[in-house]
Design a protein around this nucleic acid. Structure first.
Lengths: 208, 208
DNA sequence: TATTATACGGAACGAACGCCCCGTTTGTCA
DNA sequence: TGACAAACGGGGCGTTCGTTCCGTATAATA
């Protein structure tokens, strides 16, 4: 989850950067505040989605709005940073299941995780559903990675005869997005969650 | 779909109202404009949901913003009026299927209609998903009617053995909401729609 | 046609919110 | 510890949008 953010605009006499990755070392307080902002954003976006006022995030982080903007050029950039982190976690999880001995179980288990995440993290489903967000996340690498990882799990499950043949990874992700949204509205209790996931999962199994 | 809107605040010397239903007769131009506003709102809310600026609706209706407010006290009231109309249509449709000879077919057919509507009418799914709307629609009669009508179709289908026993009407409506949202994001082509509906429908059938 | 209640339109208002500016504070390094 | 660059914070600006106000236009009625 390394950010591509680079502070400053490249002033005249920039000291050589020690890490060599194009990002200048941040001052101690700046690094601390940046972390606080990210953490606050993670919590706040999860609860209320992109709609939350940026001031709320700043207040929760214990910094001023200006500080948020020094670290992230726009509100959407901050949102992106948070969401990309979430996606990356999912990608890692999906990839760790690639070699599972039970492809069907791995696939359905991952779906369940996906939905659980979506129910708890509003920003995640908003990002997946593209809820009124420009967010060139569509062109982001993590999203491609996620789709690819899902496609791989799906393909293996299909080869194993655990999943019907007429669905693609995009279908699956859309269904999970929809399920998350439905559950979240529904109140989000875990019984309902399980029932919904079971229904969609059953629908994904091969037609008898 | 009779509105409960009543113009004026009941001045001192109000002439006896001819229709006797508590609403005073509107002037011809007022009645015409009201219809125009409703029609414009229907189209505009369907396309863009509640997020659309009210001025856009007024412009499309060919009236000023003030005129919209004379007929509907708030933007949300207008939204409600539109959504209630849509719900009522669905209720009528569901009720007409009560006596169907094939309960399973009737149930699944209605679900398909529900999703189709949701995909095309953004306001409908927003209302069903409660997307950031206070909208005491929750306490509205039509919504109760709809839930009840769905419950009846569902119950018959279950008695007929066409639908698994462990789901309720709320689950079904949530799933359809989710499917609509997923499809709409997905691009909304009718192939995808059919596939999604088929998957969820299959998931709703009795476990083998 | 004269009169009047009713309705109209759109300018104006105010609240919310993203974003920027700039005077002040703080970390860093010699 | 002194000097300076980096970072801070929060007030303020500009925009968007819901809502209201009020001078003007018009349907209804006699």
């Amino acid at each position: 989850m390394v950010s591509k953010y680079s502070p400053g605009a490249g002033g005249a006499s920039m000291p050589i950067d020690p890490s060599g990755d194009g990002t200048k070392a941040l001052r101690a307080d700046a690094r601390r505040n940046r972390a606080r902002v990210l953490e606050a954003a993670r919590i706040t976006f999860a609860k209320d989605g992109l709609a939350v006022p940026l001031d709320d995030i700043a207040r929760r982080a214990g910094v001023g709005a200006g500080t948020v903007y020094r670290h992230f050029p726009t509100k959407e950039a901050l949102f992106e940073a948070v969401v990309i982190g979430r996606f990356q976690d999912l990608v890692d999880e999906a990839r760790s299941l690639r070699g599972a001995e039970d492809p069907g179980g791995a696939f359905f288990g991952f779906l369940s995780r996906l939905v659980e995440e979506g129910v708890v993290k509003k920003d995640l489903i908003e990002a997946l559903a593209g809820a009124g967000i420009d967010l060139d996340l569509a062109r982001s690498q993590v999203l491609r990675d996620l789709r690819e990882a899902v496609a791989e799990l799906l393909g293996r499950a299909q080869q194993d005869g655990a999943v019907r043949e007429d669905v693609g990874a995009a279908d699956v992700m859309a269904l999970m997005t929809g399920a998350s949204l439905a559950i979240r509205h529904h109140g989000g209790d875990s019984d309902a969650t399980d029932r919904m996931v079971a229904i969609v999962s059953d629908g994904l199994r091969p037609v008898r």
